[in-house]
Design a protein around this nucleic acid. Structure first.
Length: 512
DNA sequence: TTCCGACAGTGGGGTCGCAAT
DNA sequence: ATTGCGACCCCACTATCGGAA
C-alpha cells in the first residue's frame, strides 16, 4: 500500500466530525490492507508507531525538506526506514538520524510529509486514535467491537490484536486471555470534588488512601518477577525492592496492581519529585536505591494462582489480595456502607492527609476491574487550593486553539511590588473564555511580536492547583502543580492578588 | 428528548539520560 | 562541564459524539 493513500484517509478522517464517519473511513482502508501490512497500517492510523518512540521529535523535523512531486513511498518502505532509525545510537547518532529523517521526508510528497511529521511527534490530530481505530478494525473484520476492545486491553497493544485478527479472523481473539507475565492496561479513576459526592454516587464502597507515587503492575510467575508502569513499560530492573517483595509473598503466580512510593526515615511519604526521580534512575540503581528506597503498596489483584479475577466484584478481588499480601504492603482503607456513613469516610480522608498523602480513592465494592478504562466506579478525591494571580503574558494556541491566546503565564506579588512568575496554565477555559481573554489580553499587550504576548500585569485570575513544588525554573524557586483557571476576577485589582510570601506560608513543607 | 460516558485534544512541570557543544 | 532534546512520569479540564435513560 502507498503511504499517500494513508495520508489521504487520515486527512479525510480529520475533516469528518462524526465519529461514525471516521470509523467507516478507517474500516474501508483496513479492508484493503494486506495481512503483512496490518501491523504497520493500523497503528499508523491510530496515531502511533509500531516501533514506539524513536528519538525523533519536533526539533528534528523542523528543518524543511523539498517534497517529492509524485507519491512513490510504500508503507513497508517507511516502516523499514523507521526501524533502522530506531536502532541508531552512539556518537554521531543525531546526525545519522537527521540524515535518515531527511531521506524519508525527501521521498514524500507534501501531504505525506505532514502525515509523517504528525506521526513522529505524536500529534496526528485526526480526532481518532486507539479507540476509534479499534471500532474501525472491528467493522473491517466483522467482529463485535467489545471483543476487540477487550483483546486490546489484555494484549496491551493494538497492533498485536490487529495482526492476529486480520490473519486468522475473529477466532484469533481467543488467544488474548489474561496471562501472568503479559501486562494489561490498568484501570484508571475519575475525579470527584468531595467524599460526599463520591460516596453519594457509589453507595457501599471502600475508601483507600491515594499515594503520590508511580503506578505499577507486578507479575510473578514462579521465580520470575516483572514490573510495569501505567503505560506498560518494563521497569523491573529499576525496582529491586519491588521484585524482592513480590518473591516473598506466599503465592507462585499472580498479578497485582499498586503504587510504588518512597517513605522517609520519619515514615512520611517523600515528595512525588523524589520518588519519580528515583524510579527514573536507570544507570546506578544500587546507589539510587540506597539513597531513596521505595516500597510497593498494593490495592488490587488481577490474577492469583492461575485464576483470572478481572470480572469479579472489587470486594472479592480485595479478599484475594488480603489473603496474598500482608497488611503493611496494602494501601490503608476503610469500608463505608453508604451516604449514611459519610462521617467515617471524611474522617479517613482527614487522617490520610494528616499522614502526608495526596487524597483518597473511593471504590465501588461490586465493580469489575475495567482494564484500560477510566471506570466510573473509582473516584479520586484530592483537596484543591486556590489563589488569585495576575496574568503576565499569554501564548498563542495550537490546533483548535489556533488564533486564540491560550497558555497563561501566572504571577504572584513580590515584596518589592513586582510579580514573580509561578508557572503557566491552559486548563479550565471554555471556548467563550478563550475568546474573551484573547480580546482582553490584546488590549493589555505591550509586546505582540512573538508567540508569547507580554501584557501589562492588570488582569486577575482565580487559579486552582493541587499543591506547591520546588522548581529550578521559576524565580520564586517554586511552581504550582496542575494549575487551572477557575474564573477571571475583574472585580479585583492586581494589588489585591496573592503574594509569594503568603503562598510559601500556606505550604510550609515546600521550600525554594 | 435529555443526559451522561467515553474520547480526543490541549498542553503543564519535573527528572533522567544521551549526544552535542 | 553544560546545554538541548526526547522519553516518561505525574496530570485537569472542555468539547463533542452517540448510545442510554
Amino acid at each position: 500500500m502507498l503511504l499517500s493513500r494513508l495520508a489521504r484517509v487520515s486527512q479525510e478522517v480529520a475533516a469528518a466530525s462524526a465519529r461514525s464517519r471516521k470509523i467507516t473511513l478507517l474500516a474501508e482502508l483496513f479492508r484493503d490492507t494486506g495481512a503483512d501490512e496490518v501491523p504497520i497500517v493500523i497503528p499508523y492510523l491510530a496515531g502511533r508507531l509500531p516501533q514506539g518512540r524513536l528519538g525523533v521529535g519536533w526539533k528534528a523535523l523542523s528543518r524543511p525538506v523539498t517534497p517529492a512531486a509524485e507519491p512513490t513511498l510504500t508503507v513497508r518502505e517507511v516502516d523499514a526506514l523507521l526501524s533502522r532509525l530506531g536502532e541508531v545510537s552512539g556518537p554521531g547518532s543525531q546526525a545519522e538520524r537527521a540524515r535518515l529523517v531527511g531521506e524519508l521526508l525527501g521521498a514524500a510528497t507534501a501531504d505525506e510529509q505532514r502525515f509523517l511529521s504528525g506521526l513522529l511527534t505524536g500529534e496526528v490530530r485526526q480526532g481518532a486514535l486507539d479507540a476509534v481505530a479499534v471500532e474501525g478494525l472491528a467493522r473491517a473484520t466483522e467482529t463485535p467491537p467489545a471483543d476487540v476492545r477487550r483483546a486490546v486491553m489484555l494484549a496491551g497493544s493494538l497492533q498485536t490484536v490487529a495482526g492476529a485478527l486480520l490473519a486468522d479472523g475473529p477466532a484469533a481473539l481467543e488467544r488474548f486471555r489474561l496471562t501472568v507475565g503479559r501486562p494489561v492496561l490498568p484501570m484508571l479513576a475519575h475525579s470527584a470534588s468531595s467524599v460526599a459526592e463520591a460516596v453519594g454516587k457509589l453507595g457501599a464502597c471502600a475508601v483507600e488512601e491515594k499515594l503520590d507515587g508511580i503506578r505499577v503492575q507486578v507479575h510473578r510467575d514462579g521465580g520470575t518477577v516483572r514490573v510495569h508502569t501505567r503505560t506498560l513499560d518494563d521497569i523491573t530492573d529499576r525496582l529491586p525492592e519491588v521484585t524482592a517483595a513480590a518473591r516473598e509473598l506466599p503465592g507462585e503466580r499472580f498479578i497485582l496492581d499498586g503504587e510504588v512510593i518512597s517513605f522517609g526515615e520519619d515514615g512520611r511519604p517523600r515528595s512525588f519529585q523524589e520518588t519519580a526521580g528515583r524510579v527514573g534512575s536507570r544507570v546506578d540503581v544500587a546507589t539510587a536505591a540506597r539513597e531513596v528506597p521505595v516500597s510497593p503498596v498494593f490495592f488490587d489483584a488481577l490474577s492469583v494462582d492461575g485464576r483470572d479475577l478481572l470480572d469479579l466484584p472489587f470486594a472479592e478481588r480485595h479478599a484475594e489480595l488480603a489473603r496474598l499480601v500482608p497488611e503493611p504492603l496494602r494501601v490503608r482503607r476503610t469500608a463505608v456502607s453508604g451516604p449514611e456513613d459519610l462521617g467515617a469516610a471524611e474522617e479517613f480522608l482527614a487522617e490520610t492527609l494528616e499522614r502526608g498523602h495526596e487524597g483518597v480513592v473511593v471504590k465501588g465494592l461490586d465493580a469489575p476491574y475495567s482494564a484500560g478504562r477510566r471506570g466510573a466506579s473509582w473516584l479520586k478525591v484530592k483537596p484543591v487550593h486556590t489563589l488569585d494571580l495576575v496574568v503576565l503574558a499569554a501564548e498563542w494556541g495550537h490546533g483548535r486553539r489556533t488564533g486564540k491566546l491560550s497558555n497563561l503565564h501566572l504571577g504572584a506579588r513580590t515584596a518589592d511590588g513586582g510579580f514573580a512568575m509561578l508557572g503557566k496554565t491552559f486548563k479550565g477555559m471554555t471556548d467563550a473564555m478563550l475568546a474573551w481573554q484573547t480580546e482582553r489580553l490584546r488590549e493589555l499587550a505591550v509586546d505582540e511580536s512573538g508567540y508569547v504576548v507580554t501584557v501589562r500585569p492588570e488582569l486577575v485570575v482565580e487559579i486552582a492547583y493541587d499543591g506547591l513544588q520546588r522548581s529550578p525554573r521559576y524565580p520564586a524557586g517554586v511552581t504550582l502543580r496542575f494549575a487551572r483557571v477557575v474564573r477571571y476576577r475583574e472585580d479585583k485589582r492586581p494589588e489585591e492578588a496573592d503574594t509569594v510570601e503568603a503562598l510559601l506560608a500556606a505550604h510550609p513543607g515546600v521550600r525554594p
